[in-house]
Amino acid sequence: MDVQSRELTVTYKIVPPPSAVAPPSLSQETTHRFPIPSLPDLESQEDSELKKYYTSLRTSIAEARTKLGEELTAWRDAVGNAELGKEKSVKTEVDDEGEEEENTEE
């Protein structure tokens, strides 16, 4: 395998409702980079190289999930109940459409 710098990059942009008051520590647009570390060569077989790469990749993905989970939970807490009404109206519209389709099939 190439000895290149590898990384997992995650970018997100949050558009909170105007009523949400987010702490200054939260950024609405964020990019994180998680390096995929090279593991020392234990064997020179290709299967082993691929296995080591995926092991490193899983480690980086776990770090990304933890970091994003913490940040998105903080955003959820900052937004609070401001989004609740929005979700209910969307759900109601979807339910109404399903009932209309059922009525036309009869």
Rank of each mutant, 00 (worst) to 15 (best):
L84W: 02
S56I: 03
Q28V: 06
S38F: 08
L26H: 09
N103W: 10
V3F: 08
Y53C: 00
P17C: 06
N103V: 07
E102L: 14
K86E: 15
G69L: 05
E49G: 00
D95S: 05
R58G: 09
T55Q: 08
K13L: 07
L84I: 14
E97T: 07
S89K: 12
S19N: 07
P17Q: 08
K91L: 12
A74S: 13
Y12P: 02
E49R: 13
T30R: 11
K88L: 14
K91H: 07
V21I: 13
S38C: 00
L50D: 09
E93I: 03
S60Y: 03
D96P: 00
G98C: 00
E93K: 10
P18T: 14
Q45A: 15
T104W: 01
D95E: 14
V10I: 15
L8R: 06
T73C: 02
V21W: 01
P18K: 14
V79R: 05
T30E: 09
P18S: 15
S89F: 00
P40K: 08
V21Q: 15
R6E: 10
K86A: 12
D47R: 09
D41R: 08
A62I: 04
A78M: 03
G69S: 08
V3Q: 14
D95G: 00
K13S: 11
L72F: 11
K88R: 13
